[in-house]
């Protein structure tokens, strides 16, 4: 989808997560930020919140994808591990929407 910066959408969603966090628990946001799983910075509900924010931002761009469906859960490696893996997963989901 031309013109949509997926990584920036993830960064914006992480900024929203930071708004709900105390000062000493702020997430350092970068391409290599580990999101969920081993050494990940998000708990399960923060991941849910992040995915809602991202889906919402994509809908604002006219793109409808579901990020937390069976397809995400069935991946051998979770697409939610890091900003990079999530960016790639969202890009793939947009290019090949689930049937």
């Amino acid at each position: 989808m031309p013109g949509v910066d997926i990584q920036q959408i993830i960064f914006d969603a992480l900024e929203l997560t930071n708004h709900a966090r105390e000062d000493h628990r702020q997430i350092v946001i970068s391409e290599s930020t580990l999101l969920f799983g081993n050494d990940g910075v998000l708990d399960s509900m923060e991941l849910v919140g992040l995915l809602i924010s991202i889906e919402e931002a994509l809908l604002d761009e006219g793109i409808e994808v579901t990020l937390s469906d069976e397809r995400a859960m069935s991946q051998s490696k979770s697409p939610f591990r890091s900003v990079t893996t999530l960016t790639n997963y969202i890009q793939d989901s947009i290019n090949e929407p689930a049937s």
Partner: peptide, 14 residues
Amino acid sequence: TYLCSQKALGMLRK
């Protein structure tokens, strides 16, 4: 109720 609530979450969060 379930689906409307689920679909509205992102909009309500704003």
